[in-house]
Simulated scan of single mutants.
Amino acid sequence: MACLPAALPALALRRWLGLGLVVLLCLSLGYALEKKVVKSKVGENVGLPCCHEIPSSESLHNYRVYWQKNTTEVVLAYAEGKKICKHKRYENRTEMGTRNLTLWISPVEILDNGPYQCVVQHLRFSQNSIVLCDEPVTLFVTADFSKPNITAEVSANSCESTEMVVRCSSHGGFPKSTISGALNNISVVWNVTWVSESSLSLYNVTGELWLNVTEDVIFTCSIENNGFAKSTSLLLKKTNDCVAPAVPPPYNVIAASSIIIVVFLLAITLAARYLARHVCSHCCKPQDSVEEGVKECMKPPVSYKVTSETSSL
């Protein structure tokens, strides 16, 4: 029982040492995995590191080196210092370092994307070979998308809003990337279409969005690839070339207007009748006096008869 207090610190120390070794192993493993991924862009020159380096006391003649892709396709192979195999697709595009055994590819193509493996064998005098290493390395090939292009097409228009079809497109990128849109810095969700000949070909992307624009807004389209983003913005304007519909007058106004029109028409009718009668009365009186004068003139004179009778007596 007296030994327990002394044993406890020793046990705790062992646990801490074990935990430290685990953490150190994880860190070293993560560092190793990080070194085995190489990134490159289409058209660049890239070097894939091998898992072994030939010491200065030896030469390539003492080794057999195989660089293969997907463990089935031999890219480049050397034996006793001589090139013994080279893939047709990598013709005039690959070289290997004679010391560090690095595989150089130039220019990089989309089809070069994928896992590679460097297998190193050491040749002995007995012609037996010993495999020194066969660790893989992954080549991650990317291609930059073009700067996004935004187009807007008006589909319908009214005084309240303008309906638009907004499209954003970009081409020539690899692999598939994130494409996003925003209205006045507020994210929107749209339909995205990817077009590519195969999984190892350049991509073209188009995003489409239907909008009801009630005021002028700024639309931004962004595409992110390999940690870098390209953006384009366009001002979407609400069109103002519309005519507001005429508002019908109230019922009371219509009724009052109708009464005024009817009274006005009656007044005109009565005035016309009065004027016609007044003109007719003035025109008829002179005609009657003329006729009476004619009749008086046609009567025989009374004084002529009297004188005749007097003369006969």
Rank of each mutant, 00 (worst) to 15 (best):
Q117P: 03
D112T: 01
T102V: 07
N204W: 00
V137P: 04
L139Y: 04
Q121H: 06
E95N: 10
H171D: 14
L183I: 12
T193N: 12
E153D: 14
E135P: 05
N113H: 09
T162P: 01
I218N: 13
C118S: 02
V188P: 05
V217W: 06
M164N: 07
E109Q: 14
S198H: 07
D216M: 07
S196P: 00
L211W: 04
S169F: 12
N113G: 07
E109W: 04
V188S: 05
T178N: 06
V213N: 02
S126R: 09
F145L: 14
T193D: 13
H171I: 14
T206S: 08
S129D: 06
V154I: 09
G207E: 08
V188N: 03
A182H: 11
Y116H: 08
F125V: 14
W104R: 15
G173I: 08
E197L: 11
E215S: 13
L202C: 11
L111I: 13
N128W: 10
V154K: 03
E224M: 02
H122D: 11
G172E: 15
I223R: 10
A156Y: 13
K176G: 05
G97I: 08
E95K: 13
I150L: 13
T220F: 05
S180Y: 09
N157D: 06
S106G: 11
N185Y: 13
S106N: 15
G181V: 11
N185P: 07
F219Y: 11
Y203F: 09
F174Y: 15
L111V: 10
N185F: 12
S146P: 14
T98R: 03
N128V: 05
T214W: 04
D144A: 15
V119N: 02
L200A: 07
L103G: 00
N113Q: 06
I179S: 03
L101Y: 01
C221W: 09
T162G: 01
